[in-house]
């Protein structure tokens, strides 16, 4: 027969855990709102950028730029984006599983794979594994800056133009909705061919400097923005995942408290009944 005091202690402990998970859920919800706002804030920039790039693509020579040049994929680099922290259900595990799978698949084809890691969780995972790691970036997600994306993208583009790798992929969680995230693998470099807008699209601009130069300065920005968007998506997805995970943890704790309380009451009742029987039988023995 378990001790009543032990059960009560257990209930108290579960209650304090529940308080923590509840608080974490609220924090995640607040952060989620912020990261969604960031995603929305980035949208006008993205749309305009693509418009301009496409209209330039029609007028500039796409073969000239090194970021567009396609090479045979012998050396592949992957940017893996996870969270810095855990407690967000399968968020990190899904990414890591997909990334390991990707690495194995590419190595199976005889390609050399190296990694760029964003987020402490993938760093912890891959530092104990044989795949070479080029660069690591941590502490990005608390406050996501465009400069961070700029630094990462700059490193990637340098590696590509200096022909240290032939293709670069992104693996990250896409934010689908509050309750679901999706792991995606996207090619980052070489930049997939842009769809030149038709002649009718947009007015005929004056260009300063020339169209080609303008096109060339916009391409790296396009790449940087892709990285930035992936980071934003991942941040939002992380917070959404953590929110749902903490929500169900809070609910589970509630259920557990209910069950334990019921049990505690039963044990108390049994103890009282036992005492009464003892008193009554004692009295009978005397009488």
């Amino acid at each position: 027969m378990p001790n009543l005091r032990d059960i009560r202690r257990r209930i108290r402990s579960v209650k304090s855990t529940q308080q923590i998970t509840k608080a974490m859920k609220m924090v995640a919800a607040a952060k989620l709102r912020r990261s969604q706002e960031n995603m929305i804030a980035a949208r006008p920039y993205a749309t305009k950028m693509l418009d301009v790039l496409n209209s330039l693509a029609a007028r500039a020579d796409q073969e000239l730029h090194p970021l567009l040049r396609v090479r045979e994929e012998k050396v592949v680099r992957v940017l893996v984006v996870t969270a810095d922290r855990g407690l967000c259900a399968a968020f990190n595990t899904n990414i890591l599983r997909r990334a390991s799978h990707f690495v194995a698949e590419r190595e199976g084809l005889g390609q050399a794979v190296s990694l760029e890691l964003a987020g402490r969780k993938c760093l912890d995972y891959f530092k104990r594994r044989p795949t070479p790691v080029e660069d690591t970036w941590t502490g990005l997600f608390n406050h996501l800056h465009y400069e961070d994306a700029d630094r990462i993208a700059g490193t990637l583009m340098r590696a590509y133009t200096e022909e240290r790798c032939d293709a670069i992929y992104l693996i990250y969680n896409r934010f689908k909705s509050m309750i679901s995230q999706e792991v995606v693998v996207e090619p980052l470099l070489p930049i997939s061919r842009l769809e030149p807008a038709g002649e009718s699209a947009g007015p005929d601009y004056l260009y300063e400097p020339t169209q080609q130069e303008l096109f060339n300065t916009l391409l790296p920005r396009h790449v940087t923005f892709q990285v930035f968007r992936a980071l934003l998506e991942s941040a939002a997805a992380e917070n959404a995942a953590r929110m749902t995970a903490m929500e169900s943890a809070t609910n589970n704790a509630g259920d557990m408290i209910d069950r334990l309380t019921l049990y505690a009451n039963r044990v108390r009742q049994a103890a009282i009944t036992k005492e009464i029987i003892e008193v009554v039988s004692g009295a009978q023995a005397l009488g």
Binding site: L56, D204, Y205, L206, Y207, E208, P209, L214, T217
Partner: peptide, 19 residues
């Protein structure tokens, strides 16, 4: 601040794209 110097723009400017 355009790449080739500062530009002043008034309503009715001709279409222009610059960095």
């Amino acid at each position: 601040p355009g790449v080739e110097g500062y530009l002043g723009i008034l309503p009715g400017h001709t279409p222009l794209l610059t960095s």
